[in-house]
Nucleic acid binder design. Structure first.
Length: 917
DNA sequence: CAGTGAGCGAGCTTCCGCTTGACTT
């Protein structure tokens, strides 16, 4: 029998809805997007690969036509949907009602291609309840093509931004880096905050804190109060100072320690009178039910969960049917959810905690798309945490969601805040005023169920109470104790995962499904790292953000996404056109500089300048440089180098030193004691010099330590460790051997000296300008003259081809007829027929490589022409220009790995050291 | 950031937003 096929986005949702719709309906899911622009070269079909726009998969010269593919892992799923559609007499596209959901519906239609006689309906709903689903199926609409266009504009703009700007970073900063509409602004927020911290100057200020006694007629006698004003001038507090440490408020009294202590002395015998008592009603309304960001924030504050842990725990709760969908920007509850929450309020807290009317929460999020409900316990009656049988993290997160949802339907908390002013006269003549404040809560309302956490210790929780004695104007009080208290203003706090996510949401950047992964991206790229819960920017992020701000200012503007959203809204409303907008963004217009001209006109970026950040007074000449091997300091050294230029000193910067702690003094300290971990191996028996082992640019090596006075005129002997050695185990004997290199092996018949030495490409023999590689490093120490002469007697071998045997032989190439073999090369394994070589792709393995596949690779390669000669002729200039850059990036890539390893090693050692301590 | 001599096959990195498993440790 024929059925109606309903396609939603999530499998868990499909299961629930299937239950509501019953027989006659088959409910399946798309599992998110089913088509996308190809992710990388491996996923890019051959037919567009060679197009100039192949890397983008967007034909920018032809109305920005996108080239979509079904990702490999979705192909079998599409086949399944197609076969379900074959037996269906109607298709309901029930993806989320937002921009992305509309696009998924359209892609499904494009890919499934239902037959003409199968009606296609677009079905939408905002809550997964039986009445809502039944109503939705009865009231379908059509796909909104303008909304689809808006999504496509968003998708293409993000691709153009990311895939055009990232390569600029590869060339100018470091290979493998990335830029994007969301991640670059997220990084900028962290970098800008650190800059604020670096520019921050603390201010110190003093006041008086005392405990006052209301007298024995009160049941509560003691209460704390702070100095408020002197002779009518308010005493300065933290908020009166600017980031530069200067007082920014006029007319306030700024006390220093001496003045504060003098005032304490002057008040020794003072008696006080209550000058005023001001009482105001206190009222606090419950917080809205959770959406993704608020859940992530509270799970972080109360449960210490990272954003990604929160999401994966929530995912499991959702799949098991405990909560509603966790990726939402809506705070709306369905009617049945409101009913369930109110039932629980009545049961657990009593009717007096229940407001007469249900509370309704309007969305606070500006670009909210409201495709789902708020995050709440699932069902039309809530289970208490104990009733769920959950344990561990799932229990705690469910409990949080449950409490928040129930509390959202409770009454306001009410009470009083009281502000008391107490006056007195000092023996030194000043009239002083102290202030005390209290808060009493007479009805806790929702606070009984749920109190929101705070991000800083400075903010009091909503349910915090401070009681004061029941004072009235004219009452006399005395000071039980009084002391001067010093304070310092603090720099703005670093972002945490949760506060950065909140900041991004406030600026309309990112979506519920991506907040957690944004953090992951900027961590993975090495732009930021975590120190406790704080996000600290790495120096490379400063370089990247500087480049983007100087050359792509508009793209890292905090308003960029919000402006884009406005344009997308206009496209969705049919008021603006996709191609016109993309053209302006990419090619530019009279008003706007386009992305393409910005990217192509970048020859003048000075990479060195970009990576240099002066530390302290620029006159000191100390700067932090972001090098290929990580950040380092450069400063003036002593005197001049042998070649007459002023000497410079360099020093590594510890990986875990936050930028705002690298001030002038710290920089000098590091430069004075360059932090290289040196291992003392002892004294060289011949030279009498100390021999140390350290890690250098080219890996571990040993060197002699020259006395200070010899440093300018001589360079110490050095030698790289053999691969068989390590810094941990290297001995003085090893070092002596290494330092003896290069070794003179002997002379040939003509009297030309042959030496054995270690070099960039490994161990080798050198005779004049004629060099020959050696196979092992040990030969450097052991090779005899006869053996060396035998090597020189052989003709020089070029390349590796002669040395290594093929890894696999596959038979003759169908085109050239030459045998195809697999070889291992500098860039990895490759197949060759003797004339053409083609590197194996990511997914190819030697074991599984067939002759057909090898022939295919060679055919692809051959299609590009005889690269060697032709390329050299036609693009000689370009090649010459490119070559050093390529070399540099290759070096960078390996260096990156090396530093990463180094950093990891360092971290473990510091950890171990800390443990020991 | 220690200091070195050749000649050889390139190809890939990257975006943001929707969704889950399938992997390994």
């Amino acid at each position: 029998m024929a059925h109606k096929l309903v396609i939603v986005e999530s499998p868990a949702k499909a299961r629930t809805i299937a239950g509501y719709l019953g027989n006659g309906y088959v409910v399946e899911s798309s599992i998110g997007h089913i088509r996308d622009l190809p992710n990388n070269a491996a996923d890019t079909p051959a037919k567009i690969k060679d197009k100039p726009w192949g890397r983008l998969a967007i034909d920018v010269d032809n109305d920005f036509t996108p080239y979509y593919v079904v990702p490999r892992d979705k192909k079998s799923h599409i086949t399944k949907l197609k076969s379900l559609l074959k037996d269906a007499d109607a298709l309901y596209l029930a993806t989320d009602e937002d921009r992305e959901g509309e696009a998924i519906a359209w892609h499904l239609l494009e890919e499934l291609k239902p037959k003409k006689d199968v009606p296609v309906h677009r079905m939408v709903f905002h809550e997964i309840t039986k009445p809502a689903i039944l109503a939705a199926v009865e009231n379908p609409r059509h796909i909104n093509q303008d909304l689809v266009e808006a999504q496509e504009t968003r998708r293409l703009l993000d691709r153009l931004y990311g895939y055009e700007v990232s390569p600029v970073l590869w060339r100018k900063v470091m290979s493998g880096l990335s830029a994007g509409r969301v991640q670059s602004v997220a990084t900028r927020l962290v970098v800008d905050r650190e800059k604020e911290r670096m520019a921050f100057r603390a201010a110190s200020y003093w006041d008086l804190e005392g405990t006052f006694d209301a007298g024995s007629s009160h049941d509560q006698r003691m209460f704390p109060a702070k100095l408020h004003s002197i002779d009518g001038a308010r005493v300065a507090r933290g908020s009166d100072f600017g980031q530069d440490g200067q007082l920014k408020t006029a007319g306030v009294a700024h006390l220093d320690r001496r003045a504060a202590e003098a005032l304490v002395d002057g008040l020794r015998d003072t008696s006080y009178v209550v000058r005023s008592v001001e009482s105001k009603p206190y009222k606090r309304s419950p917080y809205a039910p959770f959406r993704t960001t608020t859940l992530q924030q509270e799970a972080s504050r109360k449960l210490g969960m990272s954003a990604s842990v929160t999401m994966s725990v929530a995912q499991r709760l959702y799949e098991a049917g405990h909560i509603t969908y966790m990726r939402t920007d809506s705070t709306t509850l369905s009617d049945s959810a409101i009913g369930a929450a109110r039932d629980q309020v009545r049961e657990l807290y009593g009717a007096e905690y229940l407001p007469d009317k249900p509370r309704v929460y309007a969305s606070k999020v500006k670009n909210a798309q409201e495709a789902h409900e708020a995050i709440r316990p699932a069902g039309s009656s809530f289970r208490t945490p104990a009733q769920t049988g959950l344990t561990g993290e799932q229990f705690r997160l469910y409990e949080l969601i449950w409490m928040r949802t129930v509390a959202s339907q409770m009454k306001d908390a009410v009470g009083n805040t009281v502000s008391v002013r107490i006056g007195g006269a000092a023996s030194t003549g000043e009239d002083v005023l102290f202030s005390a404040s209290g808060r009493t809560i007479t009805f806790h309302g929702f606070l009984k169920a749920y109190v929101e956490g705070t991000d800083s210790d400075a903010t009091a929780k909503d349910d915090a109470e401070t009681r004061l004695p029941n004072l009235t104007q004219g009452d006399g009080v005395s000071a039980a104790s009084l002391a001067a208290a010093g304070h310092e203003t603090k720099p703005p706090a670093r972002f945490t995962e949760a506060t950065l996510i909140k900041e991004l949401e406030d600026r309309e950047i990112g979506r519920p499904s991506t907040y957690a992964s944004i953090i992951g991206t900027i961590l993975n790229r090495g732009y930021v790292y975590k120190k406790g819960t704080a996000l600290v920017p790495a120096w490379i992020a400063f370089s990247v953000i500087r480049l983007l701000q100087e050359h792509f200012e508009r793209l890292v503007d905090y308003e960029f996404t919000a402006n884009m959203e406005d344009v997308l809204d206009d496209i969705a409303g049919g008021r603006k056109d996709k191609v016109t907008e993309l053209r302006e963004f990419y090619f530019g217009s009279d008003k706007l500089a386009g992305l393409l001209p910005l990217v192509t006109g970048l020859g003048d970026i000075d990479a060195k300048e970009l990576a240099t950040f002066p530390i302290g007074d620029p006159a000191d000449g100390i700067a932090l440089r972001v090098g290929k091997y990580g950040p380092y300091l450069e400063g003036p050294g002593d005197g001049t180098d042998p070649d007459g230029t002023p000497a410079t000193k360099r020093a590594n910067v510890p990986d875990d030193l936050p930028p705002d702690e690298l001030n002038s003094a710290k920089a000098r300290e590091l430069l004075a004691n360059p932090a290289g971990e040196e291992i003392d191996l002892g004294t060289h028996p011949d030279s009498g010099l100390q021999v140390v082992a350290k890690n250098g640019r080219f890996g571990p090596y040993v060197t002699e330590v020259l006395p200070e006075d010899a440093k300018k005129s001589a360079k110490p002997r050095t030698g790289s460790l053999f691969k068989s050695m390590s810094l941990d185990t290297v001995t003085l004997d090893d070092a002596i051997k290494l330092l003896s290199l290069p070794r003179v092996v002997g002379e040939d018949a003509e009297g030309v000296e042959i030496t054995a030495q270690n070099g960039r490409y490994g161990p080798y023999l050198k005779k004049g300008t004629d060099s020959r590689s050696l196979t092992t490093e040990d030969q450097l120490l052991s090779i005899t003259l006869d053996e060396a002469l035998a090597i020189y007697a052989q003709p020089k071998l070029r390349g590796r081809a002669a040395a290594a045997a093929p890894l696999k032989e596959l038979g003759p190439d169908p085109v050239s007829g030459q045998p195809i073999v697999v070889r291992s090369g500098r860039f990895g394994d490759y197949v060759t027929d003797g004339e053409y070589n083609a590197t194996l792709r990511k997914d190819d393995t030697i074991e599984e490589l067939t002759l057909e596949r090898a022939a295919e690779l060679l055919a692809e390669r051959r299609a590009k022409g005889p690269a060697k000669k032709a390329a050299k002729k036609t693009t000689k200039k370009a090649a010459a220009k490119k070559a050093p850059a390529k070399k540099a990036t290759a070096k960078k890539a390996t260096a990156k790995k090396a530093t990463a390893k180094k950093a990891a090693a360092k971290k473990t050692t510091t950890k171990a050291a800390a443990k020991k301590a």
